[in-house]
């Protein structure tokens, strides 16, 4: 592999990470908001499941998705195995517990009375939930940053369901493992540096967005 091969890998890494974070947010923010505002006693059980999800080993998730998407699996006809779609699916599943858990905690930390106060100013129930989310947005940005970090740095699941196919499913993390295996330590380190820089740029963008949104 030479340096010219780097850009498609960086591009795919960003594409997979950003798509997975977006999907995680779409699923997990409403769920986390509901759990954070829930007065349903049994929600403790669901919360415990969410926290347990944060400890999900990526290789286990990778294995489960591999079995689902393999030719004999229930989702085999989709033909997603060893494609970026499978990698995005794996990263989304790994990201959901983090985004849900952090959103849930951030929303629960908003004073309980706030919902009553905004309803008393004419907000509809949906508007009141959005108002609570707006107050909790520092936590939401943390959730996005955490999911992004997790997605950018994950290797086990994307290797299993993507297959690390050159020019097709190879991302920065799997490339680092491959180059290390081949003894190309210098190039592996370069790839690691590029991965860190990409993560730093993404986090910088998230932080600038957060500063603008909160000020």
């Amino acid at each position: 592999m030479d340096i010219a091969d780097l850009w498609p890998i960086v591009g795919l890494s960003l594409q997979v990470a950003l798509c997975a974070v977006l999907l995680s947010v779409l699923v997990a923010v409403p769920l986390g908001t509901w759990l954070g505002l829930s007065t349903w006693r049994q929600s403790t059980w669901v919360r415990a499941i969410v926290y347990t999800g944060m400890a999900l080993p990526p290789v286990v998730v990778g294995l489960a998705i591999y079995l689902l998407l393999s030719a004999n699996g229930p989702l085999g006809p989709l033909g997603w195995l060893f494609t970026p779609k499978a990698m995005i699916l794996a990263q989304t599943i790994l990201g959901i517990p983090f985004v849900t858990g952090i959103t849930m905690t951030a929303v629960a930390a908003v004073p309980e009375d706030l919902q009553f106060q905004v309803r008393a100013l004419g907000a509809s129930p949906i508007q009141a939930r959005f108002a609570v989310l707006r107050e909790a947005r520092g936590g939401l940005f943390l959730a996005v940053a955490t999911a992004l970090g997790r997605s950018m740095s994950e290797v086990g699941a994307v290797w299993m369901v993507g297959g690390n196919i050159e020019g097709h499913t190879r991302v920065l993390t799997t490339a680092v493992v491959l180059e290390t295996g081949k003894g190309n330590f210098a190039f592996a380190l370069v790839l690691g540096g590029v991965l860190l820089i990409a993560a730093w740029v993404l986090n910088l963008a998230v932080l600038r967005w957060q500063d603008r949104a909160i000020s």
Binding site: P111, D113, L114, F116, Q117, A120, L121, A131, E135, R137
Partner: peptide, 11 residues
Amino acid sequence: AAVTQRPLPLL
């Protein structure tokens, strides 16, 4: 419209 005892500011 209601004003509560401890009003909370919005961001």
